[in-house]
Design a protein around this nucleic acid. Structure first.
Lengths: 160, 160
DNA sequence: CTTGAAAAATTTAAGAA
DNA sequence: TTCTTAAATTTTTCAAG
């Protein structure tokens, strides 16, 4: 089987490099970590096979592409039965403008990130979240005014 | 110059596909959008040149890689002079465990996402944010218990 | 845009450390 | 095992049309 070995320094470098640049060629990757291309490719395929990568995504420069607003919403459900959570999560899944959703501890139940063409559009989604279903929610909206630090991967050094 | 033309349907498909799979080969990409490989590559290079992509990132399956916790923190500065914002943003920039930071409207000034090996480590960062500098902040921490929807790009359909 | 040829990268297979 | 080398395949890139 191909399971549960610890990651050595080459594996970690491969993970780190691909976080930074998912479109790097295997050949450049191999060169940067001092392995032959075929050994590097073999490791990459093994890591992929074993589920170390969730996805490879291009991050678009939305400002260049279309007028839009991004919001972070905090959500508090009125009732906390499992079915209330399930219903809310199902709704979230079906709304494509909601690009991220987390269940959290503390004052709120969920954090959402929503990307919309404009505020009118956002308000429709807000209404949909508040009214649809038989659960009741409290929503606080925070418009993103500046992205000070965009997600470009975690610092693996600080996790090992 | 190579500026300010509107995106046609091929361009949009290229952007959408690369959001979904940043490591797709140009050949497969060309096939999926019904263009010849060379025409497709020419468009991709032009889009890159014109700044439509911010980055290409592999999303790691952190659960598979190392024990860790992720938190969302809401931040409120006590003083709102420009220098207070600048000082806080500078500190955020220097802490690698902070993987995202947004300036927002509403009740809070910032949202942070933080990835740490454990809660003890998180508390150190919390202290660093509260004490360092001559600004004062209020921090509320929300531990992420479940990632209901991971970011895999925006729905371009809803923006056009 | 397309074709088609040259250059580069990926993938596979054989064998060494 | 995991690596390296080297050959076969595939992809990328470039030059015309």
């Amino acid at each position: 089987m191909s399971e549960e070995k610890t990651l050595d320094k080459y594996d970690r470098k491969i993970l780190a490099k691909l976080q930074e640049d998912a479109r790097i060629t295997n050949q450049k990757l191999a060169e940067e970590i001092n392995l032959s291309p075929s050994a590097c490719l073999q490791r990459l395929r093994r890591l992929e096979q074993e589920g170390y990568f969730n996805s490879y995504n291009a991050k678009l420069n939305l400002d260049r592409i279309a007028r839009h607003i991004s919001c972070i919403a905090t959500i508090t459900l009125k009732n906390h039965a499992q079915e209330d959570f399930d219903a809310f999560e199902k709704m979230v899944e079906e709304i494509p403008e909601i690009v991220e959703c987390y269940t959290v501890s503390g004052e709120f139940d969920f954090f959402l990130k929503v990307v919309c063409p404009d505020m009118a559009h956002y308000l429709k989604i807000n209404d949909q979240l508040v009214r649809s279903g038989n659960y009741t929610v409290t929503i606080q909206t925070h418009v993103i005014m500046k992205e000070n630090k965009a997600f470009r991967g975690v610092n693996l050094e600080s996790l090992f």
